[in-house]
Design a protein around this nucleic acid. Structure first.
Lengths: 173, 173
DNA sequence: TGATGGAAGTTGAGACTTCAAGCAAGTTCG
DNA sequence: CGAACTTGCTTGAAGTCTCAACTTCCATCA
C-alpha cells in the first residue's frame, strides 16, 4: 500500500512515487499475499491445528538428514528470527511434534528434531495442504506464469536476504 | 512449504504433489513474501511506529472521499477481518491517527476517519516507505516482470476473494 | 406490530510475534 | 591464562491476530 500524492514532475528531492501502473501491481501483490497467507493459515489451523509457518518448520525438518536442524539453521532457512523460532519450537514441542536435543559439539547448540508424531501429522495433512496451494495458485497460472513467478520471487528474496549467502555457518564445515 | 514424498507415478487417489519445479517456485514465493513482509513491517515500525497493515489502512482512508470509510468497507478493501480491523482502529485511534464517527443512516454503522495527524504521519513517512518498496521490489524487476507480477497476483487474489465481487454493499447504492 | 433472521461492529481470551535484554558457552588475543 | 567479544539460544512483556461469542440495529413479512 502506498500513497500517490498529486502527480507532479519529479522535482529534485521529490521522492520517486509509484506510477499508477506500479501502484496497481503493488496493490495486487499486497492483496494476494494477504489473502493467500490468510487462506493457508486457516486451512492448516483447521485441519492440522497449526499455522502455516509452523507447518513449514515441520517440512524443513522432515527434509533434513536425521530429521533435525540446528535452531539457527532452521530459523535462517525459514526466514524467521531466532526468537520467533524459539517460541514456535516451544509450542511444537508442547504438541509433541518436535523435540529438542543438545548439540554434542557445542554446548550452546540445540537441535530441533521432528518426532514420529510430527511425521505422522505431516503425512496426514500434506495432501490437503498441497491441494490448497494448487487450487489457490498453480491451477490458476499458466506454466509461463509459474516460471515467471519463480524468477521474480527469487530475485526479491535474494535482495532481502539478511546479507551474504548465509551459507557461512561453521557447523556446515 | 510443501512435502514431496518419494516420487511416484500418480496412482488413483494419490494427491497431485508439486513437481520439483513447482516446489522451487513455491519456496521462492514463501521466502520472498516472508522476507518482504518482515522488511516492510520493520521499516514502518521503526520510522512511523506502526506495522505495514496499519499503514495500509491509513492510506486507504486517505484515498477515500472525505477521508472516511465504513468499517466493513475498509476491512474488505484491506482484505482483513472485521475483528482485526476493530482492534487495529482501536489502536490507531489511541495513536490519534484515526477517529471513529457514527453513521447517520445506520445506527450500527461506524466510519473510520483519518485525522489531521494521521494525514501528517502519512505525509512524513510515505517517501521512506515508497523507497523501501522500490528498493525491495520495483528496482529489481524489469518492466515485463513487473507487469507479469501484477497479472499473476491479480489472478491469485481474485481466486481467493471471499466470494462475489464484494461490490454489493448496500451503502454504495 | 412484532417475531425472525441477518448485518455491523465489538469484545475477551488465547495464540503468535516482536523487541530488547539476558545467560551461557565458544573464540580471540595479549 | 583470562578479559573482552561473539555466538547460540531463551525469556518476558507488550503488541497484534484469531476465533467464537455477543450486542445492537436493520429488514422482512405475516
Amino acid at each position: 500500500m502506498n500513497t500517490a500524492p498529486a502527480a507532479s514532475s519529479a522535482s529534485a528531492d521529490e521522492p520517486r512515487w509509484l506510477t499508477d501502473e506500479e501502484q496497481r501491481v503493488w496493490r495486487s501483490y499486497i492483496e494476494a499475499a494477504t489473502l493467500l497467507e490468510d487462506h493457508l493459515d486457516r486451512q492448516l489451523q483447521r485441519d492440522a491445528g497449526m499455522p502455516h509457518v509452523y507447518y513449514g518448520l515441520l517440512v524443513k525438518l522432515a527434509e533434513s538428514p536425521r530429521r533435525r536442524l540446528r535452531m539457527t539453521e532452521l530459523a535462517m532457512s525459514a526466514k524467521i528470527t531466532r526468537s520467533r523460532l524459539s517460541h514456535a519450537v516451544a509450542r511444537l514441542e508442547k504438541s509433541g511434534w518436535v523435540r529438542r536435543e543438545d548439540c554434542p559439539s557445542d554446548k550452546r547448540g540445540q537441535f530441533a528434531v521432528l518426532t514420529e508424531e510430527g511425521q505422522e501429522v505431516l503425512r496426514r495433512h500434506a495432501p490437503g495442504h498441497v491441494d490448497a496451494v494448487r487450487q489457490a495458485v498453480f491451477d490458476r497460472l499458466t506454466p509461463e506464469q509459474q516460471k515467471s513467478l519463480g524468477e521474480i520471487m527469487r530475485i526479491v528474496a535474494e535482495g532481502l536476504q539478511p546479507s551474504g549467502t548465509g551459507a557461512d555457518l561453521p557447523w556446515l564445515r
